[in-house]
């Protein structure tokens, strides 16, 4: 045979190859790429702008006959109600930040599908016959899903800014770094969870069913659309273990200056723990179940 070459046998070899493949499949498919970028625009534009809760508390909406309340008082009262409920006087801003987590959740959930198809089409057995570490298969896929999620979140943020997102005063670059860190941890954890669920699955139908079953509950049992404070007591504990709530909490504190559900330090610790535990578990499962 030809010359012997120096082979990288390190634990991370092949990781980027797997991530890169997934990313290529995404950015080279213009239809898919376009759809995934248009989706957040539609959500923000339609849902974000039509759910204009702020107008409920404006003088135009509240005109009680017989009581001659000055317009300025109603507007001031309305703004105060909005601020104490949502942490910002603009519901659109509240929702737009929630949309960041929303789009990250949806993209992370898709990660499981790729492993089901790879198994069905035999690509998975090809990867496994190479010397790539089994743990890297799942981490590589999770990583690609994180990168896609963050790219989409960036689009959402840009659109939201154009549509009038009201940032807090004194915003710094660090706030955005913190936002990305929170979304990164949330996406890594969620992608690992959905990859793990798909690890032994051979039918994409059942994977779709799992996704459809979980996406709305995960979203509504979080603070993405409504503040936790107004939720019924039985729902609160669920919201408080939902990682989406913590990503939202961080993002709203950093970008909008809202008073948080808990401290930033606790929020980050919770998300980091969530991501670490599920990445570790999924790597373990990958070692265990990918070799029969």
């Amino acid at each position: 045979m030809a010359q012997r070459v120096k082979v990288d046998n390190g634990p991370l070899h092949g990781l980027w190859a797997i991530t890169n493949r997934e990313l290529k499949k995404w950015y080279k498919n213009y239809v898919l790429l376009g759809m995934s970028l248009v989706q957040p625009i539609l959500w923000l534009g339609l849902f974000g702008k039509s759910m204009n809760l702020g107008s409920l508390f404006s003088a135009n909406a509240l005109n009680i006959p017989g009581l001659n309340i000055p317009k300025s008082i109603i507007d001031a009262l309305g703004a105060e109600i909005m601020k104490s409920t949502f942490g910002t006087s603009s519901y659109f801003s509240f929702l737009a930040v929630g949309m960041l987590a929303f789009i990250v959740l949806f993209t992370s959930m898709q990660s499981g599908m790729s492993i089901v198809w790879d198994r069905r089409l035999g690509f998975l057995s090809k990867i496994m016959s190479t010397s790539v570490s089994r743990g890297n298969i799942i981490v590589g896929k999770a990583l690609s899903s994180v990168i896609k999620s963050l790219a989409q979140a960036t689009i959402v943020l840009i659109i939201a800014t154009l549509l009038g997102l009201q940032y807090r005063s004194g915003l710094t670059v660090l706030d955005f770094v913190g936002m990305y860190a929170a979304l990164f941890l949330m996406s890594l954890g969620l992608s690992s969870v959905f990859l793990m669920l798909a690890l032994r699955s051979t039918s994409w139908e059942s994977q779709m069913a799992i996704m459809n079953l979980l996406n709305m509950p995960l979203l509504f049992a979080s603070n993405a659309f409504y503040p936790v404070r107004l939720m019924p007591d039985w729902l609160k504990p669920i919201v408080q273990v939902n990682p989406i709530s913590y990503a939202n909490d961080i993002d709203r504190q950093l970008l909008l200056g809202s008073t948080g559900m808990s401290s930033l330090a606790f929020d980050f610790a919770f998300l980091a723990g969530f991501a670490a535990i599920f990445t570790a578990v999924s790597m373990y499962m990958s070692w265990k179940y990918l070799t029969k």
Binding site: V5, K6, V7, D8, N9, G10, H13, G14, W16, A17, I18, N20, R21, K126, I127, T130, S131, V132
Partner: peptide, 9 residues
Amino acid sequence: MVGDLYGLP
């Protein structure tokens, strides 16, 4: 890609 999976330069 397969070369990368083997860790080849």
